[in-house]
Design a protein around this nucleic acid. Structure first.
Lengths: 192, 192, 192, 192
DNA sequence: TATGAATGAGTCTTCATTCAT
DNA sequence: AATGAATGAAGACTCATTCAT
C-alpha cells in the first residue's frame, strides 16, 4: 500500500535528517541510516538506492515549511521583516536537525553535476522575499532603502556566513542579535 | 638529512592541498594523497599517520601569508581597505587550491574536539584588521563609520557567506564586485 | 534463524580449531580462518571480530567433553586411573586438532590480562580429579599413596611437560607409555 | 674488523633475547629488534637476514652456560642434585630473559623442518645429567633408585611442565619448592 | 515487503626488504 | 659499515549491494 510505504518513507527521511544534521553529508553511510531507522539493510534499499538519493529527498521534505509560510499581504513590513529575521535566527542557532553543513557538503560534492540548484534557488528565494519586504517597507515609508536588491543580497550572504560559523567555529546568540540589529539599522531606526 | 625530508614533506603538503581543494576534507583518503604525490602507501606513512594530521599541516602551511602582509602604517585607509577587499575577492573567486570547504568540513567534523580554533582565530583576526582600517579611516575623515566593530563583523560574515557560495552554488565575479561595492558605500562614496 | 547462524558459527569454530592446531595461536590470521572456512572476509566478521574472540570460543567449544565424562562413582579406582591416563595419553599423542601449543601461546600472550584462567582451571581440575582417584584407591587399598595431592600435582606437571614435548621436539608412543607406567609404579604394582 | 662486528653482533643478540623473552618468538618482528637495539633497519640486515636466524643465534648464545658448568667429579651426589635442582628452580621462576615460551613457539613453528633438535638435545642432556647424578648417588648409597633413567625422564618432564606453567598460568615459588621436594622424596629422605 | 546473511571491493596500516648515500 | 627513506605485499576492517527466504 502506498499509505504504508509513505509512512515508512517518512520515517526514513526523518531519521536520516537527524543523521545528516549530526554528521554532515559525506560522512554518512547507508549503514548509518539503516541503524538510525532501526530497519534492515535490505529494507532501506526498497525505498532508496543511495545516500545521495535519500539526502535529496530529505531536502525536498524540509524546504517546504520555512519561506512559503510568510504571508506578504498581511501586517506591516516591519512585522514581516522581524518575522523573517526571527526565522533566520532560529535556523542559525538551532542545534537539532540543522542541515546547513550537510547541505553545503552536498552542494560542494555535486558542484560539477549542477546539483546545487536547490541551494541556489533557496538563496535566490530568500533574497527575493527580503527584497519584496524592503520594497514594501520603502513604499510605506517604514524603511529608507536605496537599493533593495543590494541590501537583501548582502543580508543573505551575511546570514549564510553566520549559519556556517554557527556549525563550525560556533556563535553566541548575543552575537547573532547584534548582527541582526546592525543589519536593520541600515534602513530603519532600532531601539535597543 | 632534514632538508631532504622537508622537501618531501613540502611536496606532500602541496599535493595534498590540491586534493583537499578539489574534494573537501572528508572525501579524501590516504590513497588519494598517495596517488597525488606519486609515492608509495608506506612512504606517506613515514611522514604522516592520518589524513587529519596532513590537513592540519596543510592549514599551518597556508595561513601565514595572507593577513600579516598588510602594512597598517602605510598609505591611506582607502588604499588599505581596497587592498583588503581585493585579497578577499581573490580568495572568494580562486578556483585552484581553495581550501574553504575543506576547512569548514574539517571544523564541523572536529567541532566537539575544539579543533576549529584555527578557523575562529582567522575570522577574529580578519574582523580586527578590518576594524582597525575603518577606525583609521574614520579618524582621518575618509570614512563615516558609526560602529566600526559592527561593520567589520558584518562584512566578514558576508564575505564568508560569499566564499561558501562560490564553492557550492557558484558566484560570478560581477556579483562579488557588486556586493563589495555595496559594502563600501555604507561608509564612503564610491564611484561606479 | 538462529539454527542457521549456529550452524555457520559451529563450522567456523571447527575449521578454526584445525587452523589453530596446525599453526598455533599467534601465527593465525583472520585470513587463514576465512580461507579454511571457505567463506568471505566480511562473512567471518559477521560472527567474530578478531582471532582472539574466535580462539576463546574454540576453547569453550572444546573444554566441555574431556573431564566431566569421568564418572567417579563407578568401577574400581584402578579402572578410573587407567581411564584417566588413557585419555591423557590420547591427548598427548593426538595429531589432529591438538590445541596444546595454541593454548599456551594464547595464555602467554594474554598473561598480563589474566586470560589464562581457563588454562589454570583446567590444570587445577585435572589435579583434583587425579587426587580424588588416588584418595579413593588409597582407602580401598588399591594404591599406596602418602600425599595424594603432591602425587597428583607432580603427575599433571609431567603430563603437561609431555604434551608440550609432543608438539615441539616430538615424543614416541613408547616413551609416553614408559613414563605413564613409571608414574603408576610409584603407588601400585604394574605388570609390564 | 671482526672484533667490532662481534661486539655489535653480541649487542643484537642480547637485546633480541630480551625481546624474545617478553614477546615470544612469533610475535617478534625485525622492527622490534631494530628498535630494541637502537640501530637502523639496514644495519640489522648486515648481520642477520631474518628473525629466525637471530633467534637461532640467541639460542646458541644462551645454551652454553647452564649445564656444562656442573662438575660431575666434585662433591657428593646430594650436593650435585641440589645444585641441579636449584638451577632449574631459578630458570623456572626467572622473569627476565626467560626464553622458555619463545623456545617452544619456535620449535612448534619449525616442527616439520626438524629445527627443534636443539630443544630435544637440551632435554636429553638434562635427562642424562640427572641420570648420572642419580646413578652416582645410588652407587654411593645416598639415593635409593630403581630405574634412574625413568626417574630422570619423569623429573625433566615435570620440570618442563612447571616452566611452561610459570610462563602462562603462573606458579608460586612455594609450589615449585613443594614439587621439587616431592621429587626428591622418591629416592631420598628429605627434612622439611 | 522485509530481513539479514553473504560477498567483495576499497581503504587502512604495518612490516620485511632494498638501496642510494 | 651504517643509515633511514622508500617500496610493495599482506593482512585488518568496513560497507555498499545483492539475494535467498
Amino acid at each position: 500500500m502506498s499509505s504504508k510505504s509513505d509512512a515508512k518513507r517518512q520515517l526514513i527521511l526523518e531519521k536520516a535528517a537527524e543523521v545528516f544534521a549530526g554528521r554532515g553529508y559525506r560522512n554518512v553511510t547507508m549503514k548509518d541510516i539503516v541503524e538510525a531507522c532501526g530497519i534492515s539493510r535490505g529494507g532501506l534499499y526498497i525505498y532508496y538506492d543511495s545516500v545521495e538519493e535519500i539526502f535529496e529527498d530529505v531536502l525536498d521534505n524540509e524546504d517546504s515549511a520555512d519561506l512559503s509560510s510568510i504571508d506578504l499581504t498581511s501586517a506591516s513590513s516591519v512585522d514581516l521583516l522581524l518575522y523573517f529575521l526571527k526565522e533566520e535566527k532560529k535556523e542559525i542557532l538551532k542545534k537539532k536537525n540543522n542541515l546547513t553543513m550537510a547541505y553545503y557538503e552536498y552542494a560542494f560534492a555535486c558542484k560539477c553535476e549542477g546539483k546545487a540548484d536547490k541551494a541556489k534557488k533557496k538563496m535566490d528565494q530568500e533574497v527575493l522575499i527580503l527584497q519584496k519586504i524592503l520594497d514594501r517597507g520603502s513604499e510605506s515609508g517604514e524603511f529608507v532603502v536605496d537599493d533593495a536588491k543590494a541590501v537583501a543580497t548582502d543580508m543573505v550572504y551575511a546570514i549564510n556566513g553566520m549559519k556556517v560559523c554557527a556549525q563550525t567555529v560556533g556563535i553566541t546568540e548575543k552575537k547573532v542579535d547584534k548582527e541582526l540589529v546592525y543589519m536593520m539599522r541600515r534602513f530603519m531606526e532600532v531601539e535597543e
